[in-house]
Amino acid sequence: MTGEVGLRFVGQVGIAGDADAGDRAEFARDLAAFGASLEGVADSHASPHLDLSVGGLDLTWDLRFTTSEAAQAFETLVSRAEGLGPLQGRVEQLELGRPITLATGLGRPGLVGVKRALWLRVEPEASPDDVARFEAETPLLAKAVPAIRNWRWSRLTSADHGPMEMRWTHLWEQEFETVEGLQVDYMSSPVHWGHIDRWFDPEMPDRIVDLWLAHTAYVETAPVLSWGEAG
């Protein structure tokens, strides 16, 4: 397992009321700016989810802090009722987690492309051996699909109560140059449908992942997965 526990946060945000594409884009800009204004923030990025996303909220918020103290202060801040300051009333739901990296690969650091994430929950009754095998196998997808330029595979932790509470246990993030890399290469790889998908398929006795997934994708304006790395 690699490090950086607690310096990154990844969240999904649901916007209150009916928000059209323009509203979501405006809110994303405001949220990214709010994040950038926080003490000890190195990077803040927010982007609305593309229409191909399924099962998630309206947008993703990525944050990176310079110290674990600053990250802890942020966690405390957003656990309070008014933690998002002037944006609080515009937020209907916030699921914010700290990724703990299990494995990562940066084939193209600095890429500003399409970031896709699969948010998933491993069922609590899954055996530790199965969880370990699932965690070890998932990065095979990055080996098999060269269109995945950068990737990170993480466990997710979050506060037990309050606005940061979330249902997800794992986060599988990838960066592609274009959305076709996701929709064609990733979905067509036999390593995906012929091997890894058994952890997800409700007809497979191997399944350990809850059927409720969030598949989110957005267009980046910054190299989110290679933040802090030489570009």
């Binding site: 699909v145 060269p146 269109a147 064609v184 067509s188 790889s189 036999p190």
Partner: peptide, 17 residues
């Protein structure tokens, strides 16, 4: 899949490589 199909199936995951 059949052995003959494997190269084409693998290629399907490398269209935008």
């Amino acid at each position: 899949a059949t052995p003959e199909a494997l190269p084409l199936l693998d290629a399907a995951g490398r269209v935008n490589a």
